[in-house]
Design a protein around this nucleic acid. Structure first.
Length: 198
DNA sequence: TATACGATCACCT
DNA sequence: GGTGATCGTATAC
């Protein structure tokens, strides 16, 4: 393998460090597109390419849970970057977020969709044979065995972590989904979607 | 203690 | 396009 090819090959496996998550939340949400989400559970190694994210930008963002103040649920968002914020929605679905920014800056990125590339059989089983495996925030958590038990998990650990990946995508933006109640920020283009490969 | 509703999904027409 | 499932949270009382 020539040196350039080797560099590209090894970059793929670089685990994103805490400093990656400490940056501007919109930048983190955008940069996560094309990265690989890893989940180790039941002795299995699951992985998928992140294809859709949303940024939630703290106390000034009325769609962000933390804008309602510091509570037991949102506590993790007020802590250090690079931790998982997992909450239950509609009584039955978990949603996975990555905490960003500094302590007392309660911002996070919601992981909305992945393209499964490893452990697909496990995901199919977890999704009870349904065809759609991980093209939504609730679905990807079910496919990867992520529940509130993983709330607060350190993303620099070995249960849930992200690597750079080897594919880069053009990124489109749209307003965020399901937050019409947030009159101030509902039109902000803070949803990021992978489109054509670069 | 009681109530309303949500960063969703599946299944229906 | 519409709707029911289902329960933790926040908020009101």
């Amino acid at each position: 393998m020539n040196p350039l090819a080797f560099k590209k090959f090894s970059l793929r496996f670089v685990v994103l460090s805490r400093s990656f998550y400490e940056r501007d939340t919109l930048q983190v949400a955008k940069d996560l597109i094309g990265c690989e989400l890893h989940r180790v559970v039941d002795g299995q190694h699951l992985c998928g390419i992140i294809t859709e994210t949303e940024a939630y930008c703290g106390t000034e963002d009325d769609a962000c849970h933390a804008s309602k103040g510091r509570t037991a649920r949102t506590e993790i968002m007020f802590g250090a970057a690079g931790h998982a914020y997992v909450y239950l929605i509609y009584g039955m679905w978990s949603c996975l977020n990555f905490v960003t920014r500094d302590v007392d800056q309660p911002e996070a990125v919601l992981i909305r969709a992945i393209e499964p590339i490893r452990g697909v059989d496990y995901m199919r089983k977890a999704r009870q044979g349904r065809k759609a495996l991980a093209d939504g925030p609730g679905k990807l958590c079910q496919a990867m065995g992520i529940t509130r038990e993983q709330n607060g998990l350190d993303l620099t650990g070995s249960e849930i972590y992200v690597t750079r990946g080897d594919r880069r995508y053009r990124v489109a933006t749209t307003p965020r989904i399901g937050i019409d109640y947030a009159v101030r920020c509902r039109d902000k283009p803070w949803r990021f979607i992978a489109t054509n490969p670069l």
